[in-house]
Design a protein around this nucleic acid. Structure first.
Length: 456
RNA sequence: GUGAUUGUAGCUCAGUUGGUUAGAGCGCCUGAUUGUGGUUCAGGAGGUCGCCGGUUCGAGACCGGUCUUUCACCCCA
């Protein structure tokens, strides 16, 4: 047992059933992406370090998996880097490539690199693995799949409206009811910071505010104080800690609070537009909610912020998120191209659907019928029938060996194959098949045509 | 990256203050039953106790390191 092989921390193997269920979710998302006009692209699993480093904040660089250079990489290192034993100085000299950390930055790189071939506004979808050298936790892995849809080259708020609809469409198609799409706007957060005279502490302020429902008002205030935000300022925004009501009600409260902030009022106008559009268009199964405490996400969100919460019955973090970045491609030298996008958290959606037992049977269907192997002649007779079944779209297999009956039947049981065919001398003579229903235990003798009809 | 936590058969877990040959249930294999599985009965296989080292006459148990699990922080899907 000791020598049993294993996989690295934070990675997973997927069994056939798990792959089938994941495919079901991914296919559902893919279909909706397509309906909304997003074109799938793929990018390499690793990028040049210079593309990724420094794009995710100082914490982010630590979480990027670096790839060691090929060859005798140490021979090129300058002596003083060794002498100082400084990892930060040494790393760029021995590693020039790194595994992709998310899909957004590679997409920004893609847009800039292929700017002459892309027709703006460009709607792209991407479903690929990303890697983070984080410590694994519940529903957090070091290798996981992101399902992203983004638009670049359009400032229109209709994009935001469409993303709300897209979330709704996907979760409706997955029969996942009761999902809450939470929205906020970076401009509102900026406005609040402006009003309380703490614009320079915007990030500290929002990071603390984001924890409100997790650690409570008292601790949020304590954290704000510790970051140097004045008691007076916190009192000014006291309504934020208890704000409630409908999307419109909350906007009204905010209007009073942010009246003196141009940026803040702009954020409110944007949310009013989106809310009115969605109210008029309607949602199938999800609910749109304003959440002013929502600050999650990367520092580069400049407008809309999205986060999706699973139905309340399941204890699960967010199952999706996204937002708008006014200058997505600026980091790669292409100015004034706005991007807005959302992401679906595949693993968390999987676990939510699993907990609610919402995977449809068709999604995990395996072998439909097993032919018992009685010997060479009988196997050939079976294979001819199997060929016909398969060409009719039925998953059929022959047990490969003429093993004991019990062994073959047990195989059918363990693989949860619903039907078994017994075809021996008598059936071959009459050109028939004995079809056994493994669940009901009943058996009947049928012709090939009838067999195809029964199993279709 | 910081601080805790977990690891004994395929799975879920027992295992006394360190003391012979480490157990149970389920699962698996074989047979009762050579064209009929899921039930029943009988029998059987399977573990250098995560790994490496240390203390000891003696370690699954104690100590150190390492890997892994889970969790909190950071951050995030």
């Amino acid at each position: 047992m000791a020598q049993k092989p294993s996989i690295p921390k934070g990675t997973r193997d997927f069994s056939p059933i798990e792959v089938a269920k994941r495919s079901y979710i991914m296919n559902t998302i893919r279909t909706q992406f397509q309906h909304y006009g997003f074109q799938p692209i793929e990018t390499p699993s690793f990028e040049k370090s210079s593309t990724l480093m420094g794009k995710y904040g100082e914490e982010g660089d630590r979480l990027i998996f670096k790839i060691l250079n090929s060859g005798d990489y140490l021979s090129k290192v300058k002596d003083d880097a060794f002498a100082k034993a400084n990892s930060n100085a040494l790393t760029p000299q021995i590693s020039e490539k790194a595994l992709r950390y998310d899909l957004t930055v590679p997409f920004a790189r893609y847009v800039v690199q292929h700017r002459n071939d892309i027709v703006l506004p460009f709607k792209r979808s991407q479903m690929q693995l990303v890697w983070r050298a984080d410590n694994p936790q519940n529903n957090r892995y070091r290798e996981f799949c992101q399902c992203d849809a983004d638009v670049v080259g359009s400032d229109s708020l209709w994009q935001e409206v469409e993303f709300v609809q897209l979330y709704d469409a996907v979760f409706t198609a997955l029969k996942l009811e009761g999902v809450t799409i939470k929205m906020n706007n970076r401009k509102i957060l900026s406005g609040i910071a402006e009003v309380i005279g703490a614009s320079d502490k915007l990030i500290d302020f929002t990071v603390a505010l984001d924890k409100l429902d997790k650690i409570g008002k008292e601790k949020v205030i304590a954290e704000m104080l510790s970051k140097g935000i004045s008691e007076e300022a916190i009192k000014t925004v006291d309504p934020l800690f208890t704000i409630s009501g409908s999307f419109g009600d909350q906007l009204a409260t905010l209007k009073g609070l942010l009246a003196t902030s141009e940026t803040g009022m702009q954020g409110i106008e944007e949310l009013v537009f989106i809310n009115e559009a969605i109210e008029s268009l309607g949602l199938e199964s999800a609910t749109l909610q304003l959440d002013v405490t929502l600050a999650r996400g990367l520092n580069y969100y400049t407008g809309a912020i999205f986060e999706v919460a699973a139905p309340e019955a399941v204890k699960m973090g967010s199952i999706g998120g996204g937002g708008r970045y006014a200058d997505l491609t600026g980091i790669f030298g292409l100015k004034d191209v706005s991007g807005v996008g959302i992401s679906f958290g595949l693993d968390r959606i999987y676990n939510t659907i699993e907990q609610l037992d919402l995977f449809p049977e068709e999604a995990i269907e395996g072998i439909k019928v097993l032919f018992i192997n009685f010997g060479k002649e009988e196997a050939l007779y079976a294979m001819k029938a199997i060929k016909q079944l398969r060409s009719n779209g039925i998953t059929a297999v022959l047990y490969p060996d003429a093993a004991k009956m019990k062994k073959q039947m047990t195989y059918a049981n363990r693989r949860e194959i619903p039907f078994v065919i017994l075809a021996g001398g008598e059936e071959m003579e009459n050109k028939t098949f004995a079809l056994k229903d493994m669940v009901a235990g009943e058996q009947e003798t049928v012709t090939l045509d009838a067999l195809i009809e029964r199993l279709k």
